[in-house]
Lab assay of single mutants.
Amino acid sequence: MDALKSAGRALIRSPSLAKQSWGGGGRHRKLPENWTDTRETLLEGMLFSLKYLGMTLVEQPKGEELSAAAIKRIVATAKASGKKLQKVTLKVSPRGIILTDNLTNQLIENVSIYRISYCTADKMHDKVFAYIAQSQHNQSLECHAFLCTKRKMAQAVTLTVAQAFKVAFEFWQVSKEEKEKRDKASQEGGDVLGARQDCTPPLKSLVATGNLLDLEETAKAPLSTVSANTTNMDEVPRPQALSGSSVVWELDDGLDEAFSRLAQSRTNPQVLDTGLTAQDMHYAQCLSPVDWDKPDSSGTEQDDLFSF
């Protein structure tokens, strides 16, 4: 819950932080000083300027060897085509990944977070970031790969997607708890209302004896509580940590079903599988986004697919 609360507080303090972009060759504004600060901008989305290598189908939802083989196929196909790589912007948030063309600003792909089953910074092609997700059109699994400016960037994108998945799962947990509370309150309110109706004398007997209905007592009954809980029953509950912020979080049926399955089948359902080692994760978390744009010590960066 700490990640969720800190993310909400950060967004309320400075929503404009989320509009910064990394990996864009110096076009961005001043960047936060450390990885923790940038992680807090996830709610509205972190932007990464990358190059799209392509996509291939895979048979399993996750796995280092599986993704490595898929990336190898994608890279080989991209090299064989001889075409310049498409420059894209990857927007990562707890909602998922939005992929747009840098030149036309046209939407290429919009992947809900619950469809993503794996992401990684490839070991062999260490400047490549990739994720595996279920197609929104059918049940097939797709591996999408992107060329980053350097290994640090690939690791940073991988960690960002993993963190977005974690925050999304926490949102789901909060929403589920809130819905259970509202359902319980609604049920209790309905029981109270039913009890009051059972003990209320029939209207005919009131008229016969000349008694008047006590409207004041009726007004004191917990009807307002019942209506408050039943009027918006169809509205999706939102985490309290975000009250007053500009973010509107809505959970669709697909996300609810997917996270429910994860909660039942996995020990740590909030953790998205990645190909990063503990050492890689520690190294990337210690980086400032400013470091992502620094040239690798191995030599001059080449803006070309064939540089790796």
Rank of each mutant, 00 (worst) to 15 (best):
T218G: 06
K51G: 15
S6G: 15
C143L: 09
C199N: 03
T158H: 01
T104P: 00
S245L: 02
A130L: 05
V75R: 10
D126N: 12
V75P: 08
L17A: 15
E188Q: 03
L107T: 09
Q285H: 04
Q155N: 09
L17D: 15
Q264Y: 02
S175Y: 00
V271G: 01
L272G: 06
R182D: 14
L262H: 05
D183S: 05
W35R: 15
L99V: 14
F146L: 11
V207K: 03
K179M: 10
I71Y: 07
I108M: 01
G26K: 06
M153Y: 06
K166V: 06
E216C: 05
G244Q: 04
T158Y: 01
R9G: 10
S307H: 04
L147H: 15
T89D: 14
A162D: 01
G8D: 11
S135P: 08
R39W: 15
T300A: 10
G23K: 13
L103Q: 07
S6E: 10
D273F: 09
E44A: 13
C143W: 15
E64M: 04
T149D: 04
K166R: 01
P94F: 10
R238T: 01
D273M: 07
G8A: 04
R266C: 00
N268P: 01
S205K: 05
W249E: 10
E257F: 06
E216M: 10
G24N: 00
N102Y: 13
K91E: 12
M55L: 12
T274A: 02
L251N: 05
S227D: 12
A241V: 04
K19L: 04
H144Q: 14
I116E: 11
T104L: 05
P32I: 15
Y118G: 02
Y283S: 03
K30S: 04
I132Q: 09
R73Y: 15
R95I: 03
D280F: 05
K83E: 12
W249S: 13
E235D: 07
L4M: 01
A145L: 14
E177K: 11
I113S: 00
G26P: 10
G254A: 14
G299H: 00
V236M: 08
A258I: 06
D234A: 13
S16V: 03
C286T: 14
E44W: 14
P94D: 03
R27P: 10
A208I: 04
T274N: 04
G254E: 09
G96Q: 11
A228D: 05
G82R: 15
T120I: 06
L276G: 03
A195R: 06
T209D: 01
K179C: 11
E40S: 06
T267W: 13
A156V: 03
L203Y: 06
R238Q: 01
A69I: 10
G8E: 08
S140I: 15
M233T: 07
T41V: 12
V192H: 09
D191A: 02
P237I: 04
A263H: 02
L31R: 12
N268W: 04
M233P: 12
K84N: 10
P222S: 10
D303A: 04
W172A: 01
G24I: 07
A263S: 01
